[in-house]
Amino acid sequence: MPRRAPIVIAGTVAGLAAVLSFKPHESGVSKAVASASTPATSDGHDTFTGSAIATRYGTAQVEVTVVNGKITNIVAVALPDDEPKSVAISTQAEPTLKQEALTKQTAAIDAVTGATITSAGYEASLQSALDRAGFTAADGARGSSTIPNVEKHGDHGGFDGDDGAPPGFAPPRG
């Protein structure tokens, strides 16, 4: 048993060093610059790129395809990706945001829990693209998100406590 300790410690140190030296690759998606609108065909099928919306964690920008007055596809051209956690949050939120917009046929969508800033940027860019397309939702709903003005925290949290818990929260005592 004592012979294993140096091997385990060496492996732990090597693994920790590898994790700490990890540098995520640059995402080409967030660097993309798209035109205001790009008609795809002349049969009522057009693709429009929304404004690039700056957020605390990176840029959000979408491209929407409208066919015969219906939103048929949304592609995230850029999503917040300033930090690895931003990438994880955006990647997890994007399918939900896309599906809700396609289902509701509007940019007036609900924010994804834990991805408020990504959701707001997505919604604002989508509304911009729909405006460029001259698209109006059947019920007249419009995306109206404003980007939250929050301090940037390394943990993406917003609580004042240094333990990451909401003010007034006390964990149960066991």
Rank of each mutant, 00 (worst) to 15 (best):
V66E: 07
N149T: 10
V62G: 01
G164P: 05
R3I: 05
S86Y: 09
G143K: 00
H153K: 15
F135Q: 02
R3H: 08
I74F: 06
T91N: 12
A5T: 12
T41I: 13
V77E: 00
P95Y: 06
A108R: 09
G58T: 12
G174S: 11
P95C: 04
K85N: 13
G121M: 12
V13L: 11
E26C: 07
G161P: 01
S21H: 12
A54G: 06
G164N: 04
V8P: 02
T47M: 14
P166F: 11
G140K: 11
G44T: 02
G134R: 13
G58A: 09
R56L: 12
F48R: 02
S30K: 12
S42L: 11
A107N: 02
S35D: 09
E123H: 07
K104D: 02
S35Q: 14
R3A: 09
H25R: 11
D160G: 10
A93M: 05
K23D: 04
T41G: 07
P6C: 04
F159G: 00
R3D: 07
S86I: 13
P167K: 15
T59G: 08
Y57A: 13
P39H: 03
G50N: 01
G154T: 11
P24D: 02
V29I: 02
R132G: 07
A76E: 04
Q105Y: 12
P166G: 01
F135I: 03
A93G: 02
A18C: 05
S30H: 15
S144K: 13
V8F: 09
H153I: 10
F22E: 07
I71L: 04
R4Q: 08
D160P: 05
Q127N: 02
A34V: 07
G158Y: 14
M1K: 11
G50T: 07
S90G: 03
I117Y: 09
T55P: 06
P167V: 14
A170P: 03
A129L: 05
